[in-house]
Design a protein around this nucleic acid. Structure first.
Length: 591
RNA sequence: GGGGCUGUAGCUCAGCUGGUUAGAGCGCCGGUCUGUCACACCGGAGGUCGCGGGUUCGAGCCCCGUCAGCCCCGCCA
């Protein structure tokens, strides 16, 4: 069978050769990964995107001229080699290489792409560390030659194709929406693009195709998806880039269950593509429950260590400050870490710092040892609370007092750090969960102003429509999140289609009709034109690729990523531009 | 916007309490070597200690500022 890698200049890719190719004459093109020069015999590991193969240069097959040339090959030089695939001599196979049973006995050698000595190494031996990431990003053309990145980006490709195939098979249309769009001054900061034709006017790059996809529903394209590039000018994290790809889905005449089913089909397919068998449907959990039990809206259900409310057990014999907190209406939450008594004072100090970065006033802790419960938290919690915890010997209890808005997330963070520090084993490998019934609004802690928890087009929960007039802060929404192993994969909702309801929501958000018209007029007009019930979801594709590639940084699944400060080190962007270019755009830079 | 960590040879790092000529491994250059696969062995070259200022008899080390990278909080409808 002809190789998929066959071209006019080569017959195979390096990494595809196997024992079945023995006896074939092949021509390979690749990069010199490493050279081992034994004098009379020279081995070159030749690399391409498929992998490595050992090329042997010896006097039996190669001329003295070829041997001399091979002896001078430097790393990362591109060569074209022609020779015979042979099984390696007995005992010389390399079981660590997929191509390790064979080697190519080179007859001819042509240097087609000489290379300077690379500033960062591409080939890396066992136990050798990589260059620092800033150097790897600056010389990304070299870093991208690493087998790990070939593997990651090939996986990314397959995930993209699998997404398309899965959604197409369910009748979804892949429709593209504009990259040059209208600025939307709420939400994330926009990347702006100045208009040359209209002085002083700007496009924005889309934060997401949200409004466009809703308009497609209005227009009857009842199943839409897009592998959408999105842009947000916000500060970054290990799993956030200023430009990213989301699997954007929207459908009409649906309820949440329909979106769950489609999403589950996509995720099951993507996990299968990565060799992981997972099953749908995924469990559901109300947002309130996730916060109460795990202290986050994206709980990692692979582990226990659930939060407990000890407030009712604070009283006689408890510390004064805890009793005062309860008296103020605050709550005391705690979690028990089995075997957590093994944590050192240093670990506990670090956990306390974690709680404090989440704005908790401190972290209570106590250990149950052979001689009873010890530690500063023991006295503070008091006998009733300790009794309720039912500590076994070796257990650690960690507690935080405060308002739910502070104490729950703080203890949630402590929970994850405790799991990490104890190296606790996961109960399951894959823990998907849908989080639903989010609050419709959240209050800005400073101004008291309502803000949408998701976005202003999220429909209220049908059971809570009555609350909109009486207690909007208690109203739940149709917003749902897809969560996997403590990571948010994506979020979505059923959208508001009733213009009057939409205006009521805007009212609560402090958006007057004129402002709504200015910002979202084209959507509101659409809703008045006959809008079907619709909703959808957006899944963070890069994050999914990161998880399935088993890497810790989103930058490892993106060919040309930006740094945490939103710079492109490889291209050197952003950059200053000549004044003449600014003049054309009617721009002046104010220092 | 805030906090933490990092920056010394091409790469990864060490460099003690501020003290003479800043080290190691890998890589690179030269040499030996026919079964290596992080080849081995012999020899050699290679430094703006991120940058700027300060303290000091003396700074890689201390102080201030600044730049860059990573991580976190805020932020990310």
């Amino acid at each position: 069978m002809a190789s998929l890698g066959r071209t006019t200049l080569r017959t195979h890719r390096c990494g595809e050769l196997r024992a079945t190719h023995a006896g074939e004459r092949v021509t390979l093109g690749g990069w010199v990964h490493r050279r081992r020069d034994l004098g009379g015999l020279i081995f070159v590991d030749l690399r391409d995107r498929e992998g490595l193969v050992q090329v042997a240069f010896g006097p039996d097959a190669a001329s003295p001229e070829v041997l001399r040339l091979a002896g001078g090959l430097t790393p990362e030089t591109v060569v074209i080699v022609e020779g015979e695939v042979k099984r390696r001599p007995a005992g010389q196979a390399n079981p660590e290489m997929p191509t390790g049973e064979v080697e190519v006995r080179a007859a001819t050698l042509r240097v087609v792409g000489p290379a300077e000595v690379p500033v960062i190494p591409v080939a890396r031996g066992k136990g050798e560390t990589m260059a620092n990431e800033d150097l790897r990003l600056r010389h990304r053309h070299l870093d991208l030659r690493r087998p790990e990145l070939y593997r990651n980006l090939e996986l990314r490709h397959r995930l993209l194709q699998r997404t398309r195939a899965t959604l197409s098979a369910q009748g979804f249309l892949e429709l593209e929406t504009p990259i040059l769009t209208k600025p939307t001054p709420e939400g994330a900061r926009d990347y702006l693009v100045p208009s040359r034709v209209y002085p002083g006017e700007f496009f924005a790059l889309p934060q997401s195709p949200q409004i466009y996809k809703q308009l497609l529903m209005v227009s009857g394209y009842d199943r839409y998806f897009q592998l959408a590039r999105c842009f947000r000018d916000e500060d970054l994290r290990a799993d956030r880039q200023p430009e990213f790809t989301q699997i954007d889905i929207e459908a009409s005449f649906i309820g949440p269950e329909d979106i769950y089913a489609v999403t589950e089909a996509v995720l099951v397919a993507l996990w299968a593509e990565a060799g992981e068998a997972v099953t749908a449907p995924f469990p559901r959990m109300p947002w309130r429950e996730a916060m109460e039990r795990f202290g986050v809206d994206k709980p990692d259900l692979r582990f226990g260590l659930e939060l407990q409310d000890l407030s009712a057990r604070i009283g006689e014999g408890s510390g004064e400050f805890l009793r005062a907190a309860v008296g103020r209406g605050e709550r005391i939450h705690a979690l028990v870490a089995p075997g957590g008594a093994a944590l050192s004072r240093k670990d506990l100090d670090a956990l306390t710092e974690d709680a404090k970065t989440m704005r908790a006033s401190g972290l209570l802790w106590a250990k149950r040892g052979p001689d009873g419960v010890t530690g500063p938290g023991a006295k503070a919690l008091g006998p009733l609370a300790l009794e309720a915890l039912q500590l076994a010997e070796g257990d650690l209890v960690l507690g935080v007092a405060g308002t739910d808005a502070v104490a729950l997330p703080a203890l949630g963070r402590v929970r994850l750090e405790t799991i990490r520090r104890l190296g606790l084993a996961a109960r399951t490998k894959h823990a998907f969960v849908w989080i639903e019934q989010f609050p419709l609004f959240e209050r800005d802690p400073d101004t008291g102003q309502f803000a949408p928890m998701h976005h202003p087009f999220t429909a209220p929960h049908p059971d809570d429509l009555g609350l909109l007039g009486t207690a909007p802060e208690r109203a739940r929404s149709t917003h749902y999140d897809s969560v996997y192993n403590g990571t948010e994969l994506g979020s979505g909702s059923i959208r508001i289609v009733d213009p009057a309801l939409q205006q009521r929501v805007f009212d609560w958000l402090g958006i007057v009709p004129a402002e709504a018209e200015r910002r979202f007029g084209f959507l509101l007009e659409g809703l008045k034109a006959g809008a079907p019930p619709h909703g959808g979801i957006a899944l963070g594709f890069d994050r999914i690729a990161m998880l399935l590639a088993g890497v810790d940084s989103i930058r490892d699944v993106i060919a040309f990523p930006k740094t945490a400060q939103a710079r492109a080190l490889f291209e050197g962007a952003p950059t200053v531009v000549p004044q003449a270019d600014l003049d054309v755009l009617h721009l002046k830079v104010v220092p």
